Computed example of a mutant assay.
Amino acid sequence: MLIAQISDTHVSTPKGPDDDFLHTSEHLARAVAHLNRLDARPDLVVITGDLVDRGEVAEYERLRGLLAPLTMPVFLLPGNHDDRDNLRRVFVDHAYLPRDGFLQYTVDGWPVRLVVLDTNIPGEPGGRLCAERLAWLEARLAEEPQRPTVVAMHHPPFSIGLPLMDSFGLDGIDGLAAVLRRHSQVERVLCGHLHRPIVRRFAGTVACTCPATAHQLALDLPPANRLAIVMEPPACMLHLWLGDAGGLVTHVSLIGDKHPPLTLHDGQGWVRDAQPPPGFHAT
């Protein structure tokens, strides 16, 4: 099984700030094309929040059009830029989305189970896992204790050493850790929010954040204390299930065709006098 993850798409209306300056919609279109042309076809795509920039209906309608070409099922979850009701209204045919309350659900039918958590606090940049949301997670994990499981949510359950972003973190981390320690089937916690690939051990499993499909967060480690973005190459994550023996392996896949591969071994043997493809360069 192959799970593709994209995050922080920040789709805006035409000529909106993210559209005009960061070209987020164009970048999402490239990400969709990238996923569709992967040789290893993902079984599903999960988008870990900040789907749009201001939570407006028109933004979700544009997002819907941009995602329409995907040739595999797509599952959405809210981030701090999202509006639950408007998301539900535009994606009303996505039957997995609850009709009211938190946007939390499970995805079954594949070798790895997906459990989606809603960390949104309307109007605030940080996230929260309250007692109700944690109780829901506990109940869902208790349903399938032997099934390999991935938990997906927007806000990561750890600090990253960037003070400003850490101030927009997740409330309820200790409660989440307590739940996860009781359920060893959780292979990974997939998050967004940070616009960078970051990995940390957490509560007996591994938690990671996904790069954005457009702009990335500048890596300003202490003593720097600013919040900046950088147009590093956008990327997605590919989570490959290799079975009980191999477990879940996570890869970062750069989006775009600026760096074509040079084949050294074609599956049958080493390629003699391999010729670089057009566009291949070492700079």
Results as ranks from 00 to 15, higher is better:
residue 14 P to E: 04
residue 38 L to C: 05
residue 34 H to M: 06
residue 31 A to I: 09
residue 38 L to Q: 12
residue 26 E to I: 07
residue 12 S to N: 14
residue 33 A to C: 10
residue 43 D to Y: 05
residue 53 D to Y: 15
residue 54 R to N: 09
residue 34 H to D: 05
residue 20 D to H: 08
residue 51 L to H: 13
residue 51 L to Q: 14
residue 52 V to M: 04
residue 36 N to D: 01
residue 12 S to R: 02
residue 25 S to G: 15
residue 47 I to N: 10
residue 13 T to M: 08
residue 25 S to Y: 13
residue 26 E to S: 07
residue 22 L to G: 02
residue 44 L to H: 10
residue 21 F to D: 04
residue 44 L to W: 10
residue 12 S to M: 04
residue 51 L to R: 15
residue 44 L to T: 12
residue 50 D to F: 04
residue 48 T to A: 03
residue 24 T to R: 14
residue 24 T to A: 11
residue 18 D to S: 08
residue 36 N to H: 00
residue 19 D to L: 10
residue 30 R to D: 11
residue 33 A to P: 02
residue 7 S to I: 07
residue 42 P to C: 10
residue 12 S to E: 14
residue 20 D to M: 05
residue 17 P to A: 04
residue 16 G to L: 02
residue 36 N to Y: 00
residue 54 R to K: 13
residue 19 D to H: 14
residue 28 L to Y: 11
residue 5 Q to T: 00
residue 11 V to M: 08
residue 41 R to M: 01
residue 27 H to F: 15
residue 55 G to S: 12
residue 28 L to I: 14
residue 32 V to L: 13
residue 16 G to S: 06
residue 37 R to H: 05
residue 44 L to A: 13
residue 12 S to D: 15
residue 17 P to G: 00
residue 48 T to E: 08
residue 16 G to K: 08
residue 29 A to P: 14
residue 50 D to S: 04
residue 52 V to R: 02
residue 22 L to H: 12
residue 27 H to G: 08
residue 30 R to W: 05
residue 49 G to W: 14
residue 44 L to D: 04
residue 32 V to M: 10
residue 6 I to N: 02
residue 18 D to T: 07
residue 41 R to Y: 00
residue 41 R to G: 01
residue 19 D to N: 11
residue 33 A to L: 09
residue 5 Q to H: 04
residue 51 L to M: 15
residue 52 V to S: 03
residue 9 T to S: 12
residue 13 T to F: 01
residue 19 D to E: 14
residue 27 H to P: 05
residue 11 V to T: 11
residue 16 G to Y: 04
residue 10 H to L: 05
residue 33 A to G: 11
residue 51 L to S: 14
residue 39 D to L: 09
residue 50 D to G: 06
residue 48 T to I: 08
residue 11 V to Q: 09
residue 48 T to R: 13
residue 28 L to P: 06
residue 52 V to L: 03
residue 55 G to Y: 11
residue 31 A to Q: 13
residue 53 D to C: 13
residue 25 S to N: 15
residue 49 G to R: 10
residue 43 D to E: 15
residue 10 H to Y: 06
residue 54 R to A: 08
residue 24 T to K: 12
residue 54 R to D: 09
residue 47 I to H: 10
residue 32 V to S: 12
residue 47 I to S: 07
residue 27 H to C: 15
residue 23 H to C: 05
residue 10 H to S: 03
residue 26 E to C: 05
residue 45 V to W: 12
residue 53 D to A: 12
residue 15 K to C: 01
residue 37 R to E: 04
residue 44 L to I: 10
residue 17 P to C: 01
residue 24 T to Y: 07
residue 7 S to G: 00
residue 15 K to V: 02
residue 36 N to W: 00
residue 55 G to T: 13
residue 34 H to G: 00
residue 22 L to I: 11
residue 34 H to R: 10
residue 9 T to R: 02
residue 41 R to C: 03
residue 48 T to Q: 10
residue 25 S to T: 15
residue 40 A to K: 09
residue 23 H to I: 01
residue 27 H to N: 15
residue 22 L to E: 12
residue 8 D to M: 02
residue 34 H to L: 03
residue 9 T to W: 04
residue 43 D to F: 01
residue 33 A to Y: 11
residue 38 L to W: 04
residue 29 A to V: 15
residue 26 E to T: 14
residue 53 D to M: 13
residue 31 A to W: 14
residue 46 V to Y: 09
residue 16 G to V: 07
residue 23 H to S: 02
residue 15 K to N: 02
residue 25 S to R: 12
residue 42 P to S: 11
residue 34 H to S: 06
residue 7 S to H: 02
residue 35 L to P: 02
residue 36 N to E: 01
residue 39 D to G: 06
residue 27 H to D: 14
